[in-house]
Design a protein around this nucleic acid. Sequence first.
DNA 1: GCTTGACTTAGACAATGTCTATTGTAGGGT
DNA 2: ACCCTACAATAGACATTGTCTAAGTCAAGC
Lengths: 138, 138
Amino acid sequence: MSDLLERLRGRGWRMTAQRRVVAEVLDGDHVHLTADEVHARAVVKLPEISRATVYNTLGELVSLGEVLEVATDKRAKRYDPNAHRPHHHLVCARCGAIRDVHPDGNPLADLPDSERFGFTVSDVEVTYRGVCPNCAAA
Amino acid sequence: MSDLLERLRGRGWRMTAQRRVVAEVLDGDHVHLTADEVHARAVVKLPEISRATVYNTLGELVSLGEVLEVATDKRAKRYDPNAHRPHHHLVCARCGAIRDVHPDGNPLADLPDSERFGFTVSDVEVTYRGVCPNCAAA
DNA sequence: GCTTGACTTAGACAATGTCTATTGTAGGGT
DNA sequence: ACCCTACAATAGACATTGTCTAAGTCAAGC
Ligand SMILES: [Mn+2]
Ligand SMILES: [Mn+2]
Ligand SMILES: [Zn+2]
Ligand SMILES: [Zn+2]
């Protein structure tokens, strides 16, 4: 996601130290942080960054389609910078570990017209739950 | 779910007015309420019921497998009394309307071993998102 | 009808998310 | 290089969702 900042600048984004730091924290494709986890990591690089700015910036990145909100956690939303390659998630019910997964098939195609109730269906979110090898050993 | 109360009594549950009211609110298979929505409806029938009791009772029903927690809403958990027939959910991105759906195929079988990373996978939650006919018309 | 341990309650507390008034600044214009 | 100004960041209040505790209440067995 090194070119993210360039893309955003091209879209008219004003570039600030705070936005750069949030983008740096989200760098790497296998990260699924809550907003407050993003804030905690951002504060290390830029101590005066506020919670409100982190929430605002994440919301903007979601609107722009650069970051996805996922509901794997039943408490806080998680923010996923891997927005360009469709994938789903595998979550450990004990420790909360999250892995990206790429199942076979297309779940959208598995929903017949008779089960769509007139909705225009555009997206599907799949969350597999289980126990990770670490937690199984313990 | 008219026999739910009988099943619970058989499992040693002490029967109280509060628990009866929560069960009544959850009656009907196409309901997906948040805890505070359950509380709001329960208060109509039993004005002195407390939030804590509603949260406690819902948690117990989930532990007993009589009600499912679903994460279709990215804010509050929703409680689904349709725990006996496996199904998934179709959610309107505009108004939040939720429908039960029964897709073809088994998403668990679509996750190959190579994508399981040593997890013992036991469950899958699928949420389709789109726009309902009402919202599309408006 | 008692007794008793499970249940309920009010409200404090915690975690997550939103909003506003004020202050600061990125970036274009000169 | 310096100014402007619209946009962005900040602190902190507030809202929503969920958890916990201490004290009072009651369902169910005797
Ligand atoms: Mn992901
Ligand atoms: Mn359902
Ligand atoms: Zn684990
Ligand atoms: Zn709708």
